[in-house]
């Protein structure tokens, strides 16, 4: 409550804590989540599956979109093949049937993979909100290490539970190497 004044003077994105090890980060993230914070994020140079549990991250939409892409690609490929062979350009080749299902399987299969693969990659990037040219976390000077060797946790001001002084205190209680304010 008292921090609101600080916000006005100094537009703040959040408070960031830096940790030395993966274990500390996971523990910190779990505590933060348990403390009721929701608008916060952990930054780590390697994917940590433990964080998914600790932060309650269970977004399965990438799989869902990929499945939809696979179904659309497969049915599209099969339809394309049979439409071309039977309707658009029916060619009689040695009396073989126009609709020859075994012969359509390769194209169907490739279309399934193509569309599913593209959906998987594109939906991952889109759901992650990328490409994003600017993000406040990079304002923290040491944040560059997040892609190499250090672990970070940032609680954002948007969180309803955010309170400047209290949040700083809370983060300091997690035994970080450093706590920093993140300019917006």
């Amino acid at each position: 409550m008292s921090s609101h004044s600080t916000l006005d003077v100094h537009p703040l994105y959040g408070i960031m804590a830096e940790f030395a090890t993966a274990g500390e980060l996971v523990a910190a993230a779990r505590k933060t989540h348990e403390a009721g914070f929701r608008k916060f994020d952990a930054y780590t140079p390697v994917p940590l599956h433990e964080l998914d549990d600790a932060m309650d991250l269970h977004d399965n939409r990438v799989s869902l979109f990929t499945l939809i892409g696979a179904i659309l690609g497969g049915s599209g490929g099969f339809t394309l093949a049979s439409w071309i062979s039977a309707k658009a350009l029916p060619l009689n080749i040695g009396g073989r049937p126009l609709i020859s299902i075994p012969m359509f399987i390769p194209v169907t299969f490739e279309c399934t993979i193509l569309i599913a693969g593209l959906t998987a990659a594109i939906s991952m990037i889109m759901l992650n909100g990328l490409p994003l040219p600017y993000h406040p976390v990079f304002n923290v000077e040491r944040f560059g290490a997040a892609s190499k060797s250090k672990f970070f946790l940032c609680i954002e001001t948007d969180d309803p539970k955010f309170d400047h002084a209290a949040t700083v205190k809370f983060l300091e209680s997690l035994n970080p190497e450093e706590v920093a304010e993140v300019a917006r």
């Binding site: 993230a29 994917p47 940590l48 964080l51 977004d59 990438v62 759901l127 490409p131 892609s147």
Partner: peptide, 20 residues
């Protein structure tokens, strides 16, 4: 693309990698 090593990103990233 503005990758910032976020845990929320990693989660989807790992899923997409496995799917791919």
């Amino acid at each position: 693309l503005g990758w910032r090593s976020s845990a929320r990103h990693w989660q989807r990233y790992e899923k997409a990698s496995l799917l791919l």
